[in-house]
């Protein structure tokens, strides 16, 4: 193998790793925020990730709107969906002790419904879905090409992650949310409206998952199986990073992104999924609170 071929592979692993890493981080951050506050392990995160990509695809394909309009519309659609889920299913368990297992099984049910619906609808229409690029063209990093579209995805996801971080740290809502993470009762005593924070964090989590799905759909072509892979990946990131730790989600998300990019280059992506499962199991057994727990 020539030096330039090795370099080419290395660059491709790095760029793919970066793009996948930020998307993984975004989705896992959404999942971990919701677990940290509500104690809801969203097993259907992968299906919602896919839902976002499919809705965006539908806007583009059927309404023929520009991709950026479709993306914004899809994000907007996540809000009523969040509200509906929160009001009908999630709200009623807020005061149940050990509610995480109830939520877990509940979201497995949601997963089954969505996957059943998608397989008889979208699954019949097409095997592979593609979104048009946000920005056309190719930029050369030295001699190595990277599509402008993926550069945009990388940038957008990074900006969203930064916004999420900034909001959690500086905005009053974010500070209240972190207070609820740490101690629900103490936060309530300090006058934080815990239920409002729960609703907010659920909507925020769904928004992150939706954003991840849209960006993934922009960067790569996808099929229905991406839902399952993403669900496993996001859960593994959350567990390894420490449930409730956004920093953990980002760090482990990046690591998993590069793992995926590296492993997929040389062998099958299934092996990457397999390694996430192994990592999750090991962490569950050795340090269930995760690597970045407070």
């Amino acid at each position: 193998m020539t030096t330039s071929a090795i370099l080419l592979i290395a660059i491709s692993v790095i760029t793919t790793g970066l793009v996948l890493g930020v998307i993984f981080s975004l989705v896992a951050a959404g999942v971990t925020i919701v677990y940290g506050s509500i104690w809801l392990p969203n097993a259907s995160n992968g299906q919602f990730f896919l839902t976002a990509a499919l809705i965006c695809w539908s806007f583009v394909t059927w309404l023929a709107v520009p991709i950026w309009v479709a993306a914004l519309l899809t994000l907007a659609v996540s809000l009523p969906i969040s509200y509906l889920l929160e009001a009908t299913l999630i709200r009623r368990f807020y005061d149940v002790p050990d509610r995480n297992i109830a939520y877990f099984v509940l979201t497995l049910g949601v997963t089954q419904i969505l996957s059943g619906i998608f397989s008889v609808t979208y699954g019949r229409w097409s095997d592979q879905f593609n979104l048009p690029p946000m920005i056309a063209g190719v930029t050369f990093i030295g001699p190595f090409p990277m599509t402008n579209n993926r550069i945009f995805v990388l940038g957008a996801a990074s900006v969203l992650l930064a916004l999420l971080f900034a909001m959690l740290r500086f905005h009053p809502y974010g500070r209240a949310l972190r207070a609820v993470f740490q101690n629900r009762e103490a936060a309530a005593l300090r006058g934080v409206n815990v239920r409002a924070i729960y609703r907010l964090s659920f909507a925020l989590g769904m928004l992150s998952i939706f954003a991840g799905g849209i960006l993934y759909g922009m960067a790569y072509s996808f099929d229905l199986t991406v839902a399952w892979t993403m669900a496993v990946t996001a859960f593994a990131i959350m567990i390894v990073g420490g449930p409730g730790s956004v920093l953990g989600a980002v760090v482990v998300g990046m690591v998993f992104g590069f793992t995926q990019a590296g492993v997929s280059t040389f062998t099958s992506p299934t092996l990457a999924t397999f390694s996430y499962l192994a990592a999750m199991l090991i962490i569950l057994l050795l340090k269930p609170s995760g690597l970045f727990s407070r």
Binding site: V105, L108, G109, V110, T111, Q112, L114, G116
Partner: peptide
């Protein structure tokens, strides 16, 4: 449809 029905029943 079985998946959908089972999922709905789980919920």
């Amino acid at each position: 449809l079985k998946d959908v029905i089972y999922g709905a029943l789980i919920i």
